[in-house]
Design a protein around this nucleic acid. Structure first.
Length: 165
DNA sequence: GCCAACGTTGGC
DNA sequence: GCCAACGTTGGC
C-alpha cells in the first residue's frame, strides 16, 4: 500500500448520478462536478490526487450504502459547469481567470458484491467511526482511513482490490 | 413527508 | 462581526 495514496468517500444520489452511470461512462470515466460546498471544494482542489481510492456512496434513498469502488484519474481542476448558464450548478461569480469550484475525474473500478448499508457499517468497530455515519454529516467528499478502506473492501467482498488500490 | 443539522446570506 | 432567517441535505 502506497504511503501517499489516500482514500475518499464520495456521495451521490443515484437518481442524479449512480455508480452504474459511472460504469457506463466512456472508459468508465466521469468528472465529479457540481460540488458547491467550500470544504468539499478544498478537498477536490488541494488534497485528492491521481491514484487515490474512492468509495462510492449512494445517498438519500431508502437504503443508503457504499455500493462500489472507483479511482481518481485526474486531480483537481476548475469545474466548468460553474460557468455554464444552462447548468443547474451555474455560479456567475466563478470566472476562467479565478475559478471558485473544482472537480476531479474518477474511473469506475467495481461494484461491491455486498453493498454496505449504514447498519452494516455501524456493526463493525472500525467502520462505525466513519464520517458518513455521524449525525448531521453532510459533506459530500469525506476522507477515509486506510484501515476503513481495507475493511470496506473485505466486507464488501472485493478484498483482491487491495492489491491494486 | 418530517425534521434535525448544517451552510449561507444579509441586515444591523 | 454577530446572528436570525432561510435553503439544503439526507436519514428515517
Amino acid at each position: 500500500m502506497s504511503q501517499t495514496r489516500r482514500y475518499w468517500l464520495l456521495k451521490s444520489e443515484p437518481g442524479c448520478f449512480s455508480i452504474s452511470d459511472l460504469q457506463n461512462s466512456p472508459q468508465g470515466i466521469s468528472s465529479w462536478d457540481g460540488v458547491r460546498n467550500y470544504q468539499a471544494r478544498n478537498l477536490l482542489r488541494d488534497e485528492i490526487r491521481t491514484g487515490d481510492g474512492i468509495l462510492f456512496y449512494h445517498s438519500n434513498i431508502p437504503e443508503p450504502a457504499i455500493v462500489g469502488v472507483a479511482r481518481v484519474v485526474r486531480s483537481g481542476y476548475p469545474d466548468h459547469t460553474a460557468r455554464d448558464p444552462r447548468s443547474e450548478h451555474f455560479d456567475p461569480r466563478s470566472t476562467e481567470a479565478s475559478p471558485i469550484w473544482f472537480m476531479v475525474d474518477v474511473q469506475y473500478v467495481a461494484h461491491l458484491p455486498h453493498a454496505l448499508s449504514r447498519e452494516d457499517l455501524r456493526r463493525h468497530p472500525a467502520l462505525s467511526a466513519m464520517e458518513v455515519l455521524k449525525k448531521g454529516s453532510r459533506l459530500s467528499v469525506q476522507p477515509v482511513s486506510a484501515a476503513q478502506w481495507r475493511d470496506v473492501l473485505v466486507l464488501g467482498g472485493r478484498p483482491e482490490l487491495l492489491e491494486d488500490l
